[in-house]
Design a protein around this nucleic acid. Structure first.
Lengths: 134, 134
DNA sequence: CTGTATCCTTAGGGATACTG
DNA sequence: CAGTATCCCTAAGGATACAG
């Protein structure tokens, strides 16, 4: 499992050490915006994560307390993943990343409505996402 | 030079493709919070970036329009690096990363005052950083 | 379906010597 | 001092087969 080496006490560096890889944040994105909960759901994301990598990242995210998993009651062979509070608190980071990307690159999958709303009424947008996540 | 492969039209993925490496964001951090401007300044940051990597990242950041460089008039052998608007617009992303890190990890180099101020009066904090950057 | 294991390739990056 | 070039090593991660 990918392990974290803390390079300094800088809070930026700390965050980077956590998510500087190609996949961690995409799994979190899927949990926040795509309502994905099962292994197979994450596998289907358009960036095409390999199953071994997904397995590794889910384990690591759980080990650092960003997600949690429980047996899915309707079908005991499946595990259901969800965000912890620590994970939900990444919403503002995601939002800022998205707004920056949208500002400087055309053709990304973001509606003008969302961009406008998130820019002018950021707190409300974040609050409503948080509410949806429970 | 490290090249960017865009994996999808997702704005999160887009941002990740840009800064998913150990150094890019630290260079930006140094420009925003440490007022570093010269090659040797970045070399001195506590995470100890190697000169070849720094060289690569500065070139790439300039090529994607996040920083710009100009000959330093007082000493023509030096180049002075600074953030473009696109670079300055990363301030909110940095701030959110820092707050998340501070919330979930003790001992990071952030004052409680800053954390409090940035949490309760985010817009003002961002505005004052932006103002300082010019 | 949920993962795990294996194999293999490549990219990232550390160390360091070097040039203008 | 500002960078560049080289060498080399390791870790990240694709492909894929497989197990419960």
């Amino acid at each position: 499992m990918k392990k974290i080496n803390m390079r300094s006490d800088c809070p930026v560096s700390y965050a980077l050490d956590f998510f500087v890889d190609k996949w961690t944040f995409l799994v979190i994105r899927d949990l926040i915006f795509e309502d994905k909960r099962f292994f197979k759901d994450f596998l289907k994301s358009k960036e095409k994560i390999a199953s071994n990598i997904l397995s590794d990242r889910l384990k690591r995210l759980e080990s650092v307390g960003v997600i949690e998993s429980k047996v899915f009651e309707q079908l005991k062979t499946q595990k259901e993943y969800s965000l912890t509070q620590k994970g939900k608190d990444l919403v503002p980071v995601l939002i800022e990343m998205m707004l920056w990307s949208a500002k400087y690159h055309d053709g990304l999958a973001l509606t003008p409505e969302f961009i406008h709303k998130a820019t002018t009424d950021r707190e409300t947008v974040i609050a409503s996402i948080m509410a949806r996540l429970g």
